[in-house]
Protein backbone atom coordinates (compact mmCIF):
# COMPACT_ATOMS: atom_id res chain seq x y z
CA UNK A 1 0.00 0.00 0.00
CA UNK A 2 1.41 3.33 -0.88
CA UNK A 3 -0.18 6.56 0.01
CA UNK A 4 -2.03 8.67 1.94
CA UNK A 5 -5.12 10.62 2.37
CA UNK A 6 -8.34 9.46 0.75
CA UNK A 7 -9.94 12.67 1.90
CA UNK A 8 -13.29 12.78 0.16
CA UNK A 9 -17.00 13.02 0.74
CA UNK A 10 -17.60 9.60 -0.75
CA UNK A 11 -15.60 8.06 2.05
CA UNK A 12 -17.45 9.87 4.80
CA UNK A 13 -19.56 7.52 6.82
CA UNK A 14 -23.27 7.28 7.59
CA UNK A 15 -24.87 7.49 11.02
CA UNK A 16 -25.14 3.70 11.17
CA UNK A 17 -21.46 3.45 10.30
CA UNK A 18 -20.75 5.89 13.07
CA UNK A 19 -22.66 3.71 15.53
CA UNK A 20 -20.64 0.75 14.37
CA UNK A 21 -17.38 2.67 14.82
CA UNK A 22 -18.40 3.65 18.33
CA UNK A 23 -19.21 0.04 19.13
CA UNK A 24 -15.93 -1.37 17.79
CA UNK A 25 -13.26 1.27 18.40
CA UNK A 26 -12.17 -0.47 21.60
CA UNK A 27 -12.13 -3.79 19.76
CA UNK A 28 -14.32 -6.49 18.26
CA UNK A 29 -16.34 -8.77 20.55
CA UNK A 30 -14.27 -11.89 21.26
CA UNK A 31 -17.07 -14.35 20.63
CA UNK A 32 -17.57 -16.84 17.87
CA UNK A 33 -20.15 -14.65 16.12
CA UNK A 34 -18.85 -11.08 16.60
CA UNK A 35 -21.15 -9.57 13.94
CA UNK A 36 -24.24 -11.14 15.48
CA UNK A 37 -23.17 -9.81 18.88
CA UNK A 38 -22.68 -6.30 17.47
CA UNK A 39 -25.99 -6.62 15.62
CA UNK A 40 -27.77 -7.33 18.90
CA UNK A 41 -26.18 -4.24 20.45
CA UNK A 42 -27.06 -2.03 17.50
CA UNK A 43 -30.37 -3.50 16.42
CA UNK A 44 -29.04 -4.51 13.03
CA UNK A 45 -28.91 -7.91 11.33
CA UNK A 46 -25.51 -9.63 11.55
CA UNK A 47 -25.00 -9.67 7.78
CA UNK A 48 -25.63 -5.94 7.60
CA UNK A 49 -23.04 -5.32 10.31
CA UNK A 50 -20.50 -7.38 8.38
CA UNK A 51 -21.25 -5.76 5.04
CA UNK A 52 -21.06 -2.23 6.50
CA UNK A 53 -17.75 -3.17 8.08
CA UNK A 54 -16.43 -4.51 4.79
CA UNK A 55 -17.66 -1.41 2.99
CA UNK A 56 -15.78 0.84 5.41
CA UNK A 57 -12.66 -1.17 4.68
CA UNK A 58 -13.13 -0.73 0.94
CA UNK A 59 -13.65 3.02 1.20
CA UNK A 60 -10.68 3.36 3.54
CA UNK A 61 -12.57 4.55 6.64
CA UNK A 62 -11.16 1.43 8.27
CA UNK A 63 -7.47 1.16 7.45
CA UNK A 64 -7.19 -2.42 8.60
CA UNK A 65 -8.59 -4.87 11.12
CA UNK A 66 -5.91 -6.54 13.18
CA UNK A 67 -4.58 -7.91 16.44
CA UNK A 68 -2.51 -4.82 17.22
CA UNK A 69 0.43 -5.53 19.53
CA UNK A 70 1.78 -3.10 22.11
CA UNK A 71 5.44 -3.14 21.16
CA UNK A 72 6.58 -1.62 24.42
CA UNK A 73 4.83 -4.36 26.35
CA UNK A 74 6.46 -6.98 24.13
CA UNK A 75 9.89 -5.72 25.11
CA UNK A 76 10.69 -3.08 22.52
CA UNK A 77 11.64 -0.52 25.12
CA UNK A 78 13.48 1.79 22.74
CA UNK A 79 11.40 3.76 20.32
CA UNK A 80 13.51 5.86 17.99
CA UNK A 81 11.96 8.43 15.73
CA UNK A 82 14.63 8.64 13.05
CA UNK A 83 14.46 11.85 11.02
CA UNK A 84 16.27 12.51 7.75
CA UNK A 85 17.07 15.47 5.52
CA UNK A 86 16.50 13.99 2.06
CA UNK A 87 16.75 15.95 -1.19
CA UNK A 88 13.32 16.94 -2.51
CA UNK A 89 13.78 15.23 -5.87
CA UNK A 90 14.62 11.89 -4.26
CA UNK A 91 12.24 11.81 -1.33
CA UNK A 92 9.27 10.03 -2.89
CA UNK A 93 11.39 7.16 -4.17
CA UNK A 94 13.56 6.92 -1.08
CA UNK A 95 10.63 7.31 1.30
CA UNK A 96 8.95 4.32 -0.29
CA UNK A 97 12.13 2.25 0.01
CA UNK A 98 12.64 3.17 3.65
CA UNK A 99 8.97 2.46 4.36
CA UNK A 100 9.40 -0.99 2.83
CA UNK A 101 12.19 -1.98 5.25
CA UNK A 102 10.83 -4.79 7.44
CA UNK A 103 11.68 -3.05 10.71
CA UNK A 104 10.13 0.37 9.98
CA UNK A 105 6.67 0.74 11.54
CA UNK A 106 5.74 4.19 10.21
CA UNK A 107 7.33 6.26 7.46
CA UNK A 108 6.15 9.71 6.41
CA UNK A 109 7.24 12.78 4.53
CA UNK A 110 6.67 15.97 6.51
CA UNK A 111 7.50 19.61 5.77
CA UNK A 112 10.78 21.29 6.76
CA UNK A 113 10.67 24.46 8.84
CA UNK A 114 13.98 26.11 8.14
CA UNK A 115 16.05 27.16 9.95
CA UNK A 116 14.57 25.32 12.94
CA UNK A 117 13.82 21.96 11.41
CA UNK A 118 15.49 20.56 8.31
CA UNK A 119 14.29 16.94 8.40
CA UNK A 120 11.61 15.93 5.90
CA UNK A 121 11.52 12.13 6.24
CA UNK A 122 10.37 10.40 9.44
CA UNK A 123 10.82 6.66 10.01
CA UNK A 124 9.87 5.00 13.29
CA UNK A 125 12.22 2.26 14.49
CA UNK A 126 11.82 0.05 17.57
CA UNK A 127 14.46 -1.91 19.45
CA UNK A 128 15.19 -3.74 22.66
CA UNK A 129 18.29 -1.56 23.08
CA UNK A 130 19.69 1.69 21.77
CA UNK A 131 22.31 -0.29 19.87
CA UNK A 132 19.59 -2.12 18.01
CA UNK A 133 17.87 1.14 17.05
CA UNK A 134 21.22 2.59 15.94
CA UNK A 135 22.03 -0.49 13.90
CA UNK A 136 18.70 -0.18 12.10
CA UNK A 137 19.20 3.56 11.58
CA UNK A 138 22.59 2.77 10.02
CA UNK A 139 20.83 0.57 7.47
CA UNK A 140 18.51 3.44 6.59
CA UNK A 141 21.52 5.77 6.30
CA UNK A 142 23.17 3.37 3.88
CA UNK A 143 20.03 3.05 1.79
CA UNK A 144 19.62 6.84 1.52
CA UNK A 145 23.23 7.34 0.39
CA UNK A 146 23.94 10.70 -1.30
CA UNK A 147 20.30 11.77 -1.16
CA UNK A 148 20.62 12.39 2.58
CA UNK A 149 22.50 15.33 4.06
CA UNK A 150 21.77 14.86 7.74
CA UNK A 151 19.84 12.88 10.28
CA UNK A 152 19.20 12.36 13.95
CA UNK A 153 17.36 9.95 16.23
CA UNK A 154 14.87 11.17 18.79
CA UNK A 155 14.38 8.55 21.50
CA UNK A 156 11.23 8.67 23.51
CA UNK A 157 11.89 9.12 27.20
CA UNK A 158 8.27 8.97 28.38
CA UNK A 159 4.84 8.28 26.98
CA UNK A 160 2.81 11.12 28.43
CA UNK A 161 -0.44 10.33 26.67
CA UNK A 162 -1.51 7.63 24.29
CA UNK A 163 -5.02 7.07 23.11
CA UNK A 164 -6.03 5.89 19.67
CA UNK A 165 -8.43 7.81 17.54
CA UNK A 166 -11.68 8.00 19.41
CA UNK A 167 -14.98 9.28 18.16
CA UNK A 168 -17.13 10.84 20.81
CA UNK A 169 -20.88 10.77 20.78
CA UNK A 170 -21.45 14.52 20.52
CA UNK A 171 -18.54 16.64 21.56
CA UNK A 172 -16.42 16.35 18.45
CA UNK A 173 -19.16 16.68 15.90
CA UNK A 174 -18.79 19.86 13.88
Amino acid sequence: MSTSTLKSEQARFTDQDRELILATQEGLPLVSDPWGELGRQLGMPADEVLSRFQHMQETGVIRRVAAVPDHYKLGYRYNGMTVWDVSDDAISTMGQQVGDLPFVSHCYRRPRHLPYWSFNLFAMVHGTSREEVEHKAAQIRELLGDTCSGHTILYSSAILKKTGLRLRKQADKP
Partner: peptide, 30 residues
Amino acid sequence: EDEVISRLAVLQQQQVLSRVGPVFEHSQAG
Protein backbone atom coordinates in the same frame (compact mmCIF):
# COMPACT_ATOMS: atom_id res chain seq x y z
CA GLU B 1 -11.87 -21.49 17.60
CA ASP B 2 -12.33 -21.39 21.37
CA GLU B 3 -8.58 -21.40 21.85
CA VAL B 4 -8.14 -18.50 19.41
CA ILE B 5 -10.77 -16.51 21.28
CA SER B 6 -9.39 -17.27 24.73
CA ARG B 7 -5.79 -16.54 23.70
CA LEU B 8 -6.81 -13.22 22.16
CA ALA B 9 -8.74 -12.35 25.32
CA VAL B 10 -5.75 -13.14 27.56
CA LEU B 11 -3.31 -11.22 25.36
CA GLN B 12 -5.65 -8.26 25.37
CA GLN B 13 -6.07 -8.46 29.12
CA GLN B 14 -2.28 -8.56 29.57
CA GLN B 15 -2.12 -5.55 27.23
CA VAL B 16 0.23 -7.40 24.91
CA LEU B 17 -2.44 -6.64 22.33
CA SER B 18 -3.64 -3.07 22.54
CA ARG B 19 -6.75 -4.11 20.62
CA VAL B 20 -8.25 -6.76 18.39
CA GLY B 21 -10.26 -4.79 15.92
CA PRO B 22 -10.41 -1.96 13.42
CA VAL B 23 -7.77 0.72 12.99
CA PHE B 24 -9.53 3.80 11.65
CA GLU B 25 -8.08 6.16 9.10
CA HIS B 26 -7.56 9.41 10.95
CA SER B 27 -7.78 11.62 7.91
CA GLN B 28 -11.34 10.46 7.35
CA ALA B 29 -12.54 11.38 10.78
CA GLY B 30 -11.13 14.89 10.49
